[in-house]
Amino acid sequence: MPLMRHSNEVREMAGELGKYKLCVSARSADKAILKRAQDGGIVTQLFKFALEEGIIEGAIVAGPGDEPWRPRPFIATTVEELMSASGTKYNISPQVSWIKEATRSYGLDKIGIVGTPCQMQAVRKGQLYPVGLRDVPDKIKLAIGIFCMENFSYQSVKQLVEDHAAMKMEAVKKMEIGKGKFWVYGQRGQVVQLPLKVTHKYEQPGCHVCLDYVANLADVSTGSVGSPDGWSTVFVRTRNGDDIWSKAIAAGCFETKPIEQVKPGLELVTKLATEKITKNQKTVEERAKFGVNKSLRNPYLGPK
């Protein structure tokens, strides 16, 4: 399998896809990971590699919580723990809440973290403006971003699954958003698809001002969109991300294909990113004249 690096230069894609050095379609070479993963098992595989190579000492992942499909962020320091967290939970997991504790009672100097684009923004803000994050900035060694159109509250997912899809939460094997639908797969093999217009009301309100779809600020970001089933689209963005990704490729962790050679490819990613950002930009503007001569806050203009 050839190294699928098609460009070594930083490609300045001002705007929707962010800066990246490389974009490929990929999947883990490890069957055990693929079996449990949401898509190409990129997140679990890359963390596993980084953990085994000593690039990170632990990773903040979203593992199983107190209720079915309710995630709980925790610090995985073993491959088993990493594996237990694979798969997407479509509701909020406050990943960044652990970022300081990882350096305290866990004693980590090298941290991995996975999260949505907004969580990657939080991590980078925390590194440049570490107001309450003493001694954290230089310890983030691998930040993996996952694409995200929107997130949901737990109650939202519960209503989608239990009311709209008529399934019990604990009976669900997998949830997925793709091909314009919200998919719910049951343990017993049933498959329910809900049109996205049903899901809109359930979206987390804070997502409607989010101006990032493909985790522009991660070291490596990944999602299913753009690649065939079971494969993931991967953007390698930072120098650090590039370094780790190259090593993982050299170690045979991933199968890759040039993004130009897969369907639907980068075109769809760009289209969805543009749609999200355009729509949310509009929301931000509408908030400025939300009341009668009163506006809602715009975090991009400052803290006031």
């Binding site: 962020p73 909020i92 997991s93 406050p94 990943q95 960044v96 809440s97 652990w98 970022i99 300081k100 504790e101 999260g115 949505t116 907004c118 969580q119 923004q121 939080a122 803000k125 925390g126 107001v131 309450g132 994050l133 954290v136 997130n151 987390q204 309100p205 804070g206 997502c207 409607h208 001002v209 989010c210 809602l296 806050r297 975090p299």
Partner: peptide, 15 residues
């Protein structure tokens, strides 16, 4: 203000 997206930064920051 309808802006929270649940990242957890606030909890991490609190001394």
């Amino acid at each position: 203000q309808g802006l929270c997206m649940g990242c957890g930064s606030c909890a991490a920051a609190c001394p």
